[in-house]
Computed example of a mutant assay.
Amino acid sequence: MPASRRAVLALPALAAPVVVQAQPAWPDRPVRIIVSFPGGSTPDIAARAVATHLQQVFGQPFVIDNRAGGGGTIGAEAAARATDGHTLGVTIGGPGSIAKILNPGLAYDPVTDLQPVSLLARMPFVLAVNPNVPVRNVAELIAYARANPGKLNYGSVGAGSTGHMLVAEMAARHRLDMTHIPFRSVPQSVTEIVAGRIELMAAAAGAVLGQARGGQVRALAVSGDARMAQLPDVPLLTEAGEPGAGIYAWIGLFAPTNMPADRVARISQEAGRALSNPETGRTLEAAGFEPLGTPPALLQALIQSEVAHWGPIIRRLNIRPES
Results as ranks from 00 to 15, higher is better:
219 A>C: 05
216 Q>P: 02
154 Y>C: 14
230 Q>S: 14
276 S>T: 12
136 R>L: 04
47 A>N: 08
256 P>L: 02
192 E>C: 11
60 Q>N: 02
267 I>F: 07
151 K>G: 04
49 A>P: 06
5 R>W: 03
37 F>K: 10
303 I>M: 14
282 R>G: 04
173 R>N: 10
245 A>G: 11
275 L>D: 04
144 Y>T: 05
235 P>R: 06
142 I>Q: 00
196 G>N: 02
274 A>H: 07
226 A>Y: 06
279 E>S: 13
305 S>F: 05
156 S>N: 11
4 S>I: 04
119 L>H: 03
93 G>R: 11
224 G>P: 00
42 T>Y: 03
229 A>W: 03
213 R>E: 12
90 V>E: 07
294 T>E: 12
59 G>F: 00
124 P>K: 10
122 R>N: 06
276 S>G: 08
291 P>G: 10
34 I>M: 09
192 E>D: 15
95 P>S: 09
67 R>I: 15
203 A>F: 12
274 A>W: 06
64 I>N: 05
190 V>L: 05
294 T>W: 01
95 P>V: 11
203 A>S: 15
214 G>Q: 09
138 V>L: 04
78 A>R: 08
106 L>W: 07
105 G>S: 14
236 L>H: 05
196 G>I: 08
154 Y>E: 15
23 Q>E: 14
219 A>R: 09
99 A>H: 09
162 T>K: 00
36 S>E: 09
154 Y>T: 14
177 D>Q: 13
296 P>L: 04
59 G>N: 01
57 V>L: 01
266 R>N: 05
116 P>C: 09
163 G>V: 13
78 A>H: 12
258 N>D: 15
63 V>W: 03
47 A>I: 11
182 P>V: 12
52 T>S: 12
235 P>Q: 10
148 N>L: 01
4 S>L: 03
304 Q>R: 14
284 L>P: 01
288 G>Y: 11
11 L>Y: 00
155 G>M: 14
311 G>P: 06
120 L>M: 08
193 I>N: 08
102 L>C: 15
135 V>K: 01
2 P>Y: 02
147 A>F: 03
304 Q>V: 02
103 N>H: 14
109 D>Q: 08
109 D>W: 06
51 A>Y: 04
159 A>S: 15
127 L>W: 11
156 S>E: 09
271 A>W: 02
37 F>E: 11
277 N>T: 03
155 G>L: 13
139 A>F: 04
285 E>W: 01
170 M>I: 09
166 L>N: 07
279 E>I: 05
30 P>K: 05
17 P>N: 07
229 A>Q: 13
248 Y>F: 15
104 P>Y: 14
194 V>W: 03
310 W>G: 12
55 Q>I: 02
